[in-house]
Design a protein around this nucleic acid. Structure first.
Length: 555
RNA sequence: UGGGAUGUCGCCAAGCGGUAAGGCACGGGGUUUUGAUCUCCGCAUGCCCAGGUUCGAAUCCUGGCAUCCCAGCCA
């Protein structure tokens, strides 16, 4: 049971009631993706719900591939989906495929015909659309609606046997062409499609439609609560109709919740697919993609994603979550767990004129400012260093707490330095800074003056060259899905690649799964596509919260 | 003159007739060798609107209004 202190969402409340009313004695849910694309953050919400509910009530949750449309499906997606669910930290009770129920589904369809509740319709797709009527006007009966049970049985078996061309016949439920709910106007339950199915090969040339296959698959598996998104609300009467007509071992309850919308992103497999095919991104796992695999490569942790799903809740209200919520989740997780490191993104050389030429010190740097148990490491300090160009100004007001010509600043974990001289080229570009250091300031503050700023640095010689990729939102508008042409709202600056960055030596053996906080910059992880023989590539997962940026933009 | 749903702070979200939780965001203090973290304080006399019932209504009733979804042989 969920802890009473934490309010239950309406679905868990329903389940709690169903259990106490003895409507059900145990809980079984399912996560039913169609293998026609990669899973995205919206699926994570559904995964956390379905597996979370099963876990909370000591029930089971199946992973079921809803693979009834071979035209769009692909085994590559199956393995990617399994990997993503496992990576999120969930274990399915059973791994199923709707396609393994094709025989049973066929028998159910035959039963429906025998009940005079289904018929073979020979209308063309266009004729069928005309017969369907409109939202405000009733449809018309198909001329084939009154075929005899025997004839329907015969035609349906011929459909199965491949006697008809694709699209020439369909099996339809006989419900009500005048229903105000269009889903009940004799919906199609089987269509003819000669396509190799990734699981069943050439065994079938007829495939069941979602409405027919889904509820019956749920019933076959003994699903107690079939959780789906709001757009299926209108389908529930049909879901129930099939179950009521047929002798199913159980009647699962469909409950709808609202899908996740995230500002500045798209959660539509079709559109995400377009981003890949039209090369707006590198792949499904491009770190800018809201896919589970993209988030993983970007450096998001499973914990952060699950925390996010916890925070956004489950309701029936249409909602759009601000990006800040997701970002906050990963910051919180990594703030706690990520070891700190020093990395200079835009290197500016500085020379300490009073530091001995060939001296090198090994300075102690804690891996986490609040967690001694995370230990510390040694970082090399020398006469020539790099600091970030953004951390120096020739002149600045008091608000600027970094290095200024003629002023002092603290080098993190090292000494206080003072900028003595700026060396420029003929175009006024700053090439190098000549500084002095105060040997008395290692591990302690000077007593006679206050040094307010602290900046990060790296030894020029004893550091590693690295490429760093900075990501920004993929779209320039908050709701790209509502645009007539969402591709035109793509942010052309969603990826900024920095070459010649310098990172501290200890990052030499970084692994993609280990995120670091580059102090004062943000959280980063090694890109998993990086070739070990090349210079390392780091992805920026998220920046640090930056109140200075707020102050600076305010002016 | 179709049907289905939803409206509580900028974004989420508790609340289930007894007098508006929490998170994010935002504003302001404090600590700090990360402008980070942490911490303290502030942030809906108000719950889409209008009536009604009640000692008492975000919660019940009536009537409006707004928004979303549905006319694939997709899921």
């Amino acid at each position: 049971m969920p802890t009473p202190s934490k309010p239950q969402d309406f679905i868990r409340q329903t389940i709690t009631n169903d259990l106490s009313n003895k409507k059900v004695s145990s809980i079984t849910t399912r996560f039913p993706p169609e293998p026609n694309g990669y899973l995205h953050i919206g699926h994570a919400k559904s995964i956390c719900l379905n597996f979370g509910v099963a876990n909370d009530f000591n029930g089971q949750c199946n992973l079921r591939f809803d693979d009834t449309n071979p035209d769009k499906e692909n085994p590559e997606y199956i393995s990617a989906i399994k990997k993503d669910v496992e990576w999120l930290g969930f274990q399915w009770s059973n791994l199923f495929y709707a396609s393994s129920y094709f025989d049973q589904l066929y028998d159910f369809a035959v039963q429906l015909i025998k009940l005079d509740k289904a018929y073979v319709c020979s209308l063309t797709a266009e004729e069928a659309r005309e017969h369907r009527g409109s939202l405000t006007s009733a449809g018309k009966n198909s001329p084939y609606r009154s075929r005899s049970i025997e004839e329907n049985l015969d035609l349906f078996s011929q459909m199965k046997a491949g006697k008809f061309d694709d699209g020439t016949q369909v099996l339809r439920a006989k419900i009500d062409m005048a229903s105000p709910n269009i889903n009940l106007r004799d919906p199609i339950i089987y269509r003819i499609r000669r396509a190799d199915h990734h699981q069943t090969g050439k065994t079938w040339c007829i495939y069941p439609m979602y409405d027919f296959a889904h509820g019956l698959s749920d019933a076959i598996e003994g699903i107690t609560h079939s959780l789906c998104t709001l757009e299926f609300e209108d389908h529930r009467p049909l879901y129930d109709w099939f179950l009521d007509q047929l002798k199913t071992p159980a009647h699962p309850q469909q409950i709808e919740f609202s899908r996740l919308n995230l500002e500045y992103t798209i959660t539509s497999k079709r559109k995400l697919n377009l981003l890949v095919t039209n090369h707006h991104v590198e792949s499904w796992d491009d770190p800018r993609m809201p896919t589970i695999s993209g988030l993983r490569r970007r450096g998001y942790t499973a914990n952060a994603i699950k925390d996010f799903c916890d925070r956004i809740g489950v309701t029936k209200v249409e909602n759009t979550i601000e990006m800040g919520v997701l970002e906050n989740c990963i910051r919180e997780d990594l703030g706690e767990k990520a070891p700190r490191a020093l990395a200079v993104l835009n290197p500016l050389k500085i020379t300490l004129k009073n530091y001995p030429d060939d001296q090198t010190e090994s300075l102690n740097a804690p891996n986490h400012p609040q967690k001694e148990e995370m230990d510390s490491r040694k970082v090399p300090f020398s006469k020539t260093l790099f600091i970030d160009r953004d951390d120096f100004r020739e002149q600045a007001n008091k608000k600027y707490k970094r290095l200024v010509l003629g002023k002092e600043v603290r080098l993190r974990y090292a000494y206080v330095i003072k900028c003595e001289e700026v060396i420029k080229d003929e175009n006024d570009n700053i090439l190098e800074l000549i500084c002095s250091y105060d040997a008395q300031t290692l591990g302690k503050n000077p007593e006679d003056r206050k040094v307010k700023g602290v900046i990060h640095w790296v030894s020029a010689e004893q550091s590693i060259e690295s490429e760093i990729r900075l990501y920004d939102r993929l779209f320039n508008v908050a709701n790209p899905a509502s645009e007539e042409d969402f591709e035109s709202t793509i942010n052309p600056n969603s990826l900024k690649t920095l070459k010649k960055c310098r990172i501290e030596n200890s990052l030499n053996n970084a692994q993609p799964s280990q995120a670091y906080q580059f102090e004062r910059e943000g959280y980063f992880c090694l890109d998993s596509s990086a070739n070990k023989t090349d210079i390392p590539i780091f992805n920026r997962i998220v920046t640090l919260r930056d109140t200075w940026a707020k102050i600076a933009t305010k002016g």
